[in-house]
Every structure is written in C-alpha cells, then in structure tokens.
C-alpha cells in the first residue's frame, strides 16, 4: 500500500514537472508576443533607436526565439535565470529574498486565517442560530467581502496613523508583519470560518457523535476530538490551497505595505517588460502552486484513513 502511495506521489511529481516546463514555454512565448519592447521600456524617454538596438543586441534579444528559449532553459537548469532588466541583478538573487519575505507574510497571514477562521467557525457552529453565530458569520462575511486594499488602508489609518502602534509600511522588524498579515488573513479566515461552521454542523448530526456522548465524553471532548477532527478534512484542502495562493504573491498587500515580495516583483516585471524577472517569478509561483496541491493531497491522505485505503 505504501508503494502505491509512493507511485502516486511520483506520478504527481512528474505531472508537476510537465506543468512547470509547459508554463515556462508558455510564458516565454507570450512575453514575446505582447507589444512593447523591453529595452525601449527600460531605457525610457531619452534613448534613441540606435541605442535601443545596441542594448537589445547586448542582451541577446536579437537572436532567434528558439535560440533564446534554449539558452533560457539551459540557464534555468543551472539555476541561472538571467539578470533582471529593471533591477539590474541576477533573478535568483532577487526572487530569493523576495520569496522569503512572501513566505513570512504568508505564514503570518495563514496563522491569522487559521486561528481566527477555525475559532469563528467553531463558535458559530456551537451557537448555531444565535446572535453569536450571526456575529461571527457577519465578521467572516466582512472579511471575504471587503477588498484587501481597503482593509489595508483602514488598518494603516487606525494602528499606524492614529494609534502609532505599528509602522505604516515596511518590514524592518516583526511588527511590520502584523498589519499586512491581518489584512491578508482576514479574507481567508472568512472562507475557513464558513466552511468550518457548515462542516461541524453536518458532523454534529452524525451517529458517531451520539455514540461518543453516550460513552460519557464531555461536550468539549466531543467537539474537539470527534467533530472538529472530522470536519477539518475539507478545511485542510482549502487551507493548503489558500497557503499556496498566499505564497505565490499577495500583490496588493505587498504593494500597499511596501513588502518586497514575489507579488510586487511580478507586477513590477510586467510593467517594465522585465522578461527574465517575470519568467523567474512565474516559474516560482507555478512550482509553489503545484507543490501546494500535492501537499494538500498528501495531507488528505494522512488525515483520512478512507483515502489511504482507497490509495
């Protein structure tokens, strides 16, 4: 059985590799199809055509597309994704620290989302139909409905501008992560809370819950050991998907809070037609999302014995 799980994982890894190479090729072609010369964009107003041609040649952009793609793939295999046109540094040097920033932000946001989301969903399910339920669900709905930029600005005004408790932007220390994590995590918390609530309500109606109660388990034990554990299965999938989404860059949050992360780098790369940087960030995001999906499947395997048996 363990062998079949391993085979499944290997198969998924193979699919992941195909997806990554496919995305690399697609991005490469698309970036060269869209109008806008990257060198002209980089050089700006003052450069004449001769300069644009000279710099294009020095960057190898005058070579045939298949040659450029082959060079790119060979470089990528060596870990060399080229040099960013707009930031003038090797792409790997840029996306490394940016990914670390995004990772910390994603972890902090996920923490907010999971703790708040599970707690809200749990309390709302226990107090189903009461004012507590409505309050928690209203809070969750607000998180899902409010645009991130609005929440971000609201938090900045309250906690940075008026209370002076936290910095407006930047992540010079851990306090810099608090506001963006809340801004980013609230929306995810809302989705989790709604799912946890509905799952728990459903689970609480199952026969094994009555059995557990009949065995003398306390309400808390029933809720945590039996109801929550079973209700978490669909929630785990959502959490894993959300986390890989957060890792692939939270463009608005990173921009508003000036966090040098993957999302901000990607937008900057698009605006500046920074082909190497955009290829690098896209590949990284593809990798993260594919791995996130794989992790979700594996977690499901771990949590649900039926899935393990089925595998």
């Amino acid at each position: 059985m363990r062998g079949s799980v391993a085979q499944g994982v290997l198969r998924r890894l193979l699919y992941a590799l195909i997806a990554i190479v496919g995305v690399a090729a697609l991005v490469f072609v698309l970036l060269r199809m869209v109008p806008g010369n990257p060198v002209a964009t980089l050089l700006g107003e003052h450069a004449d055509n001769e300069t644009v041609e000279r710099i294009s040649s020095s960057l190898g952009l005058d070579q045939p597309l298949p040659v450029q793609f082959a060079n790119y793939l060979l470089g990528a295999l060596r870990g060399d994704f080229g040099e960013s046109y707009t930031l003038g540094k090797p792409v790997s040097e840029l996306i490394g620290p940016a990914f670390v920033n995004t990772l910390w932000l994603a972890l902090a946001a996920a923490l907010v989302a999971w703790v708040v989301g599970i707690a809200c969903g749990l309390f709302a399910a226990i107090r189903k139909g009461t004012i507590v339920d409505r309050l928690f669900m209203g809070f969750s709905l607000l998180g899902v409905s409010l645009p991130v930029f609005m929440v971000s600005m609201l938090l900045q005004y309250v906690f940075a501008r008026y209370l002076h408790w936290l910095p407006v932007a930047g992540i010079s220390d851990w306090t810099g992560y608090i506001l963006p994590a809340i801004a980013l995590g609230w929306g995810s918390a809302g989705s989790i809370a709604r799912l946890v609530r509905s799952s728990i309500i459903e689970v609480l109606q199952q026969d094994y819950i009555d059995t557990a109660r009949a065995k003398g388990r306390t309400n808390s034990q029933v809720l945590v050991l039996h109801a929550l554990r079973n209700a978490m299965l669909p929630v785990i999938t959502l959490m894993a998907m959300q986390f890989s989404g957060l890792l692939s860059g939270a463009v608005i949050t990173e921009t508003v809070f000036s966090i040098n992360g993957i999302g901000r780098l990607s937008v900057q790369a698009i605006a500046g037609r920074d082909i190497p940087l955009l290829q690098g960030t896209t590949l990284l995001c593809t990798f993260v999302i594919v791995m996130g999906n794989l992790a979700a499947d594996l977690l499901y395997n771990v949590c649900d014995p039926r899935v393990r048996k089925g595998a």
């Binding site: 600005m153 900045q156 501008r161 407006v168 932007a169 930047g170 921009t255 508003v256 000036s258 040098n260």
Partner: peptide
C-alpha cells in the same frame, strides 16, 4: 531612500513622521 510603490502609503508615512 525607501521604495514605497503605493502613493497613499507614502502619504501616510509622511503624515506619521516616518
């Protein structure tokens, strides 16, 4: 010199003395 892409964030930072 900090890189702050969002203009309203720059505005808030100035108002905040940052």
């Amino acid at each position: 010199q900090r890189v702050i892409p969002d203009a309203s964030t720059r505005d808030l930072m100035f108002q905040n003395g940052e």
